[in-house]
Design a binder for these strands. Structure first.
Lengths: 233, 233
DNA sequence: TTTAATTATTGTAATTTGGACAATAATTTA
DNA sequence: TAAATTATTGTCCAAATTACAATAATTAAA
């Protein structure tokens, strides 16, 4: 919670806000973290966590603060996506909003509604209700950006558990790109991605357990410097 | 020139601005259109054309208006890139700026400094002076975005002349990606890009003239609908 | 008019990648 | 112990990529 909460009108007639889109992956689906607004306007509607930026605050800092205040998520490094500023997107005045996003492992974090958030929940992108403001638009457009990044940067490993099976890895891409891949060919495709093969195996499955892998980030960063490998899916 | 020009202080203590980055290509180099500021702050420094957004104005509309007011360029469709908002990036108060960019053929447009722009000029990215505000940073970061788009969308044809040789086409990519390609292999790479081969040939060269091509945008758009081809370099 | 110089354009052969599909391996459960 | 299930590896063929060579068209100089 911030030290002070200034009145809406103190932001004059124009104001900036940040909207913080958290993407997670569980049960074979990509989900976004939403809050239920316990405040006018759009009271009781689900929304992307977001709020106004203080006049002396850096954008990225604001994104982290707002996310923490509403959901309890702390120290999440956010990436800027796009800025939305239709003159009437906010019913109470001119508010231009800068959207930020981050990816995380749902099971690694605990979320807790606070401040004016009445509830917090992970919602599957395939099952999105009508959201407050232009948040459906913001979310859809940021998801497109996520999919683009999934093809060109190894951010998939921020969504997968720290140790994953090659099948889980494949399923994430099948979900995002809405198409099935051949198992054998998928393994060839990822041949050069630096992975660590562990001795450990999948637990509690009713069939041959798969080997667990993790992403070798150190080696990846090295290869970036060398220009010896560029991630591509 | 707009109908009215409100005082800087009328934008309260916080304001939005747009910065309009125009990329062009000539003499084998990618260039950006800059203005010389005839106004404080940073008077006489070169800068990206940009100005404050009116409180009731759409962002994209603002970008087009500002570009026109400062450079005379009319009806240029701009694409959003990123938003910059460090609290002290503007010496006279809090200004968050949303950067937009567009590509055009330098020889197809005439630019003319007006409003508070003292001069306008195309400047090679390889030879960029110190710019006003954080404009070097904004420009560099938008150029990165341009390079990404050059790989995934056929925007190269917005930079090339309407009719171009395959070599000019190749040189544009060699400039952007700072690497040489094999001529024969480049032609294989672009095999599926829908081009129209004209009977016309290059003029005034001291050697065998190359055939001229143009981009078949209609066919490209059709193939987008069919999902029969996706541009990739 | 011929020839050298220069660049455009096309071709070839070896290698690598990609996709379809089959075979084998390891595990659980009945 | 066998059936079921999924993991993992292999094979074959087509397509793309790479390096490099050959040929074609034009200008300019001899």
């Amino acid at each position: 919670m911030s030290m002070y909460r200034i009145n809406f009108n103190d932001f004059f007639t124009s104001a900036f806000s940040v909207d913080c889109i958290l993407f997670g992956y569980s049960e074979g689906e990509i989900k976004a973290l939403l809050i239920k607004r316990a405040m006018q306007p759009f009271e009781n509607l689900w929304a992307i966590p977001g709020d106004l930026i203080y006049p002396d605050e850096d954008l990225e800092q604001a994104a982290e603060r707002v996310l923490f205040e509403l959901t309890g998520l702390n120290n999440i490094k956010m990436h800027q996506s796009q800025t939305f500023g239709k003159p009437n997107r906010h019913p109470q005045g001119r508010v231009i909003t800068i959207s930020y996003f981050a990816l995380l492992r749902i099971e690694d974090f605990e979320v807790k509604a606070s401040s004016w958030a009445g509830d917090v929940q992970w919602v599957s992108l395939k099952n999105m209700p009508d959201l407050a403001f232009d948040h459906n638009h913001i979310l859809a457009s940021t998801y497109e950006m996520l999919k683009l990044k999934l093809q060109n940067e190894p951010i998939c490993f921020d969504l997968l558990p720290e140790r994953f099976t090659l099948n889980e890895f494949q399923q994430l891409y099948e979900f995002a790109f809405e198409q099935a891949f051949d198992k054998a060919n998928f393994r060839k495709k990822i041949k050069y991605i630096p992975l660590i093969a562990h001795d450990e195996k999948q637990q509690n499955v009713k069939h041959r357990p798969a080997k667990l892998f993790s992403f070798n980030r150190e080696q990846y960063l090295l290869s970036l410097e060398n220009n010896s490998y560029t991630f591509k899916m």
